Amino acid sequence: MIVGYSYAAENLCPSCTIKAMRASGITVQRGKPHEEAIRKAAEKLGIDFDDEHSYDSGDFPKPVTDQQCETEVTELPDAEPGVRHAISDERCSGTNCGKWLKLGEKSPTEAGLTRWVRDDYELPQALAREIARKLREWGLSHKEFITEDNVRQAAAMFPHDYATVHAEGNPQHIELRRTPEYDDAPCFYCEQPWEKHTFTCITCANHVPADAPHGHEVQVKGQIKFREAKPTT
């Protein structure tokens, strides 16, 4: 299946290929499927489109199939040194395009990726937003190439309330609880234990390690009273 074309030292999506051909003075019929239109243009120029060795891609586009798409390799964060993420697709290099050739579409916007992360992994909006930004920073901008491990790893990098799944008796009755029921119970969002979390203090709004002492003195009816700040539930 043809997903793009190699032309003038670039791999382009069909739309950008036709634009580049016209910019080079090659007439391409409008209103036809890209392969049919490009094949017809080749015939008019006396080019054997089916024999890619008979002409140079600098003169006329050569087809790129889905199996020929080069793998894009993305560096994963420093937390996993030497580990790289392989994406079996590549982007169109046309100006302001960036479509994935095999997928035939662009990556979603940051807002769109945030919505997908939030809904698919049942995450709080604020945490999903931070995760989406981090995934894009790692080069993982399309859901097709994002794994659950990628999302969980990103989640562990940002302060968020701990939550664990509890299903008492009836598996269909699932609820999230803010405190672990046993040692090392993993967080529903990042799979880290409770002690690894950082909460936001409801009094001072600072980020506080879950297992660190933290409190405030507040005035109550003329007396000083110590109140321990606890994570929000």
Results as ranks from 00 to 15, higher is better:
residue 141 S to I: 06
residue 172 Q to L: 14
residue 65 T to D: 11
residue 81 P to F: 04
residue 185 A to V: 02
residue 129 R to D: 14
residue 76 L to M: 10
residue 82 G to T: 10
residue 99 K to T: 09
residue 134 K to R: 14
residue 20 A to I: 00
residue 117 V to G: 05
residue 218 V to N: 03
residue 207 H to T: 13
residue 197 H to N: 03
residue 56 D to H: 13
residue 170 N to G: 00
residue 41 A to V: 04
residue 2 I to D: 07
residue 43 E to T: 00
residue 104 G to M: 07
residue 107 S to P: 05
residue 140 L to H: 02
residue 171 P to I: 04
residue 146 I to Q: 01
residue 99 K to V: 10
residue 211 D to F: 08
residue 22 R to G: 10
residue 184 D to V: 05
residue 233 T to R: 15
residue 34 H to S: 02
residue 14 P to E: 00
residue 166 H to K: 08
residue 12 L to C: 08
residue 124 P to M: 04
residue 50 D to W: 13
residue 11 N to K: 14
residue 26 I to C: 00
residue 193 P to C: 11
residue 141 S to Y: 03
residue 78 D to E: 12
residue 216 H to M: 04
residue 199 F to T: 02
residue 139 G to Y: 07
residue 110 E to H: 11
residue 34 H to R: 02
residue 150 N to D: 12
residue 87 I to F: 07
residue 159 P to E: 08
residue 188 F to M: 08
residue 226 F to M: 09
residue 192 Q to R: 13
residue 42 A to K: 09
residue 105 E to T: 04
residue 122 E to M: 05
residue 1 M to S: 12
residue 112 G to H: 13
residue 40 K to R: 15
residue 2 I to N: 13
residue 30 R to L: 13
residue 74 T to W: 12
residue 75 E to Y: 08
residue 130 E to V: 12
residue 221 K to C: 08
residue 195 E to Q: 11
residue 197 H to S: 07
residue 7 Y to W: 14
residue 108 P to Q: 13
residue 170 N to A: 01
residue 84 R to K: 14
residue 231 P to Y: 09
residue 197 H to Y: 06
residue 140 L to V: 07
residue 83 V to E: 15
residue 206 N to F: 07
residue 198 T to C: 03
residue 144 E to K: 08
residue 91 R to E: 13
residue 38 I to C: 06
residue 95 T to E: 15
residue 97 C to W: 06
residue 64 V to A: 00
residue 143 K to W: 00
residue 181 E to F: 10
residue 63 P to V: 05
residue 173 H to R: 11
residue 216 H to Y: 09
residue 131 I to S: 02
residue 15 S to M: 08
residue 100 W to N: 01
residue 90 E to Q: 13
residue 214 H to K: 08
residue 1 M to L: 11
residue 144 E to F: 05
residue 129 R to S: 15
residue 228 E to P: 02
residue 19 K to I: 11
residue 108 P to K: 12
residue 120 D to T: 01
residue 109 T to W: 14
residue 224 I to T: 15
residue 161 D to C: 11
residue 1 M to V: 12
residue 223 Q to R: 04
residue 9 A to V: 06
residue 89 D to L: 02
residue 85 H to G: 03
residue 213 P to E: 11
residue 87 I to W: 01
residue 55 Y to E: 05
residue 92 C to A: 02
residue 178 R to Y: 15
residue 32 K to Y: 13
residue 122 E to R: 12
residue 129 R to T: 14
residue 51 D to Q: 08
residue 27 T to N: 01
residue 111 A to H: 11
residue 28 V to P: 04
residue 49 F to I: 14
residue 28 V to W: 05
residue 33 P to I: 11
residue 101 L to D: 05
residue 24 S to D: 09
residue 23 A to M: 09
residue 170 N to R: 01
residue 156 A to V: 01
residue 80 E to M: 11
residue 131 I to Y: 06
residue 54 S to L: 12
